[in-house]
Amino acid sequence: MRTRAPDEPCQLCGRKIALTFHHLIPRKMHRRPRFYKQYTREQLNQGIWVCRACHRGIHKHYDEMTLARDYNTLEQLQTDSQLQKHVAWVAKQRQA
Rank of each mutant, 00 (worst) to 15 (best):
L24Q: 07
M65Y: 15
A88E: 14
D7T: 10
L74P: 05
Q46K: 15
F35C: 08
R4S: 10
P26N: 08
Y62R: 08
R31P: 12
L83H: 03
Q82T: 12
T79H: 03
G57E: 06
T3H: 13
E42I: 07
T66F: 11
A5F: 10
W89T: 15
T20E: 14
Q78N: 05
A53V: 00
L24I: 00
Y39R: 07
H22D: 08
C51K: 03
H59L: 04
Y36L: 07
H30N: 10
Y36I: 05
P6F: 01
K28T: 14
F35G: 09
V90Y: 00
A91C: 06
Q78H: 04
Q38C: 11
T66C: 12
V50S: 02
H61T: 14
R32F: 09
C10I: 06
A53S: 13
A53Q: 14
V50F: 02
K92Q: 15
R69H: 13
A18Y: 09
L67E: 09
E42H: 09
I58P: 06
T20A: 08
R69L: 13
K60M: 06
V50I: 11
D70A: 14
M65K: 12
E64I: 00
H23R: 10
G14A: 02
I48L: 05
V90C: 03
L77D: 03
Q95D: 15
A5T: 02
M29Q: 15
R41E: 14
N72V: 01
I25P: 03
L83P: 00
R52G: 12
K85G: 08
Y36V: 09
Q46I: 00
D70N: 15
E64M: 10
H22S: 05
K60H: 12
M1N: 15
K37I: 07
C10V: 00
H59A: 04
H59Y: 09
L12Y: 01
L83C: 06
V87I: 13
M1K: 15
I58F: 06
Q84Y: 03
L12P: 01
K60G: 10
D63R: 11
H55Y: 04
A68Y: 12
Q93I: 04
W89P: 00
R4D: 04
E75G: 11
T73C: 01
S81A: 10
I25W: 05
